[in-house]
Amino acid sequence: MMCYIGMRILKTHGCRAAHNIYLRESVGGTDYVNSREISCEMVLDLDPRGYTIVPKTMHPGEEAPFVLSVFTKASISLEAL
């Protein structure tokens, strides 16, 4: 099944993004695309409190499995929320 997918990268100041991601500062992401795969290349400012990556579908309640891959030259840690 194909569905419209996208993602947002949020500056969340060390907090969980909550239900409405539009209340947080977005530093980038993608448009919705009817595809099995999306990518986003960015250079982010160092923020010790981190960023939140939000994979999303276009329609509320629509779910799809996903794989998130992050490539970086810097040392980072990732954690699921």
Rank of each mutant, 00 (worst) to 15 (best):
I9V: 15
M42C: 10
N20K: 11
V27C: 06
S35Q: 11
Y32H: 15
M42Q: 12
D45V: 01
L23W: 06
R49V: 04
V70M: 07
E41P: 00
M1T: 10
M2G: 02
P60A: 13
L10E: 03
G50S: 08
K56G: 05
T52G: 02
G28A: 09
F66G: 01
E25I: 06
I53M: 12
Y22F: 14
C3K: 09
L44K: 07
L81Q: 09
S75G: 02
R16D: 13
M1G: 12
A18C: 07
I9K: 04
V27P: 02
K56L: 14
R24M: 08
L23C: 05
C3A: 12
C40F: 15
I76Q: 08
T52R: 05
T57H: 05
V27F: 03
L46R: 08
K73Y: 07
R8Q: 12
A74K: 12
K73C: 10
P55W: 04
R36K: 11
D47G: 02
M1K: 11
L44D: 10
A64M: 10
M58N: 08
T30W: 04
G28C: 08
Y51M: 08
R16W: 06
I9G: 03
D45R: 10
M2I: 10
V67N: 09
Y4N: 15
K73L: 10
A64F: 02
A64E: 03
R36Q: 11
V67R: 07
V33F: 06
L44S: 09
L46V: 10
P55H: 07
H59G: 00
V43W: 00
G61R: 09
R36C: 07
L68M: 14
E25T: 11
A17E: 08
L10H: 04
H59A: 11
T57A: 13
F66C: 04
A74P: 00
R8A: 15
E37Q: 09
M1Y: 07
R36S: 15
L78F: 02
H19R: 14
G61P: 06
V33A: 10
S75W: 02
D31L: 07
S77I: 10
T57W: 04
G29V: 02
H19I: 09
P48M: 06
E62M: 13
Y22M: 12
E63S: 14
M1Q: 07
A64H: 05
H13M: 12
L68W: 05
V27S: 03
S26P: 00
Y22R: 13
L68S: 05
I9Y: 03
M2W: 01
S77Q: 13
T52N: 03
I76G: 08
L68R: 04
V27L: 06
I9A: 13
S35N: 13
S39N: 15
M7W: 01
G6Y: 05
P65V: 03
K11W: 02
K73H: 12
A18Y: 05
G6K: 04
T72W: 03
T30G: 04
T72M: 02
M2Q: 11
R24G: 00
M42K: 13
T12H: 04
F71W: 06
V70P: 04
K11N: 12
P48G: 06
L23A: 12
D45G: 03
E63Q: 12
P60S: 13
A18I: 01
L44P: 10
I21M: 09
G28E: 09
G6W: 04
A80Q: 13
R49K: 15
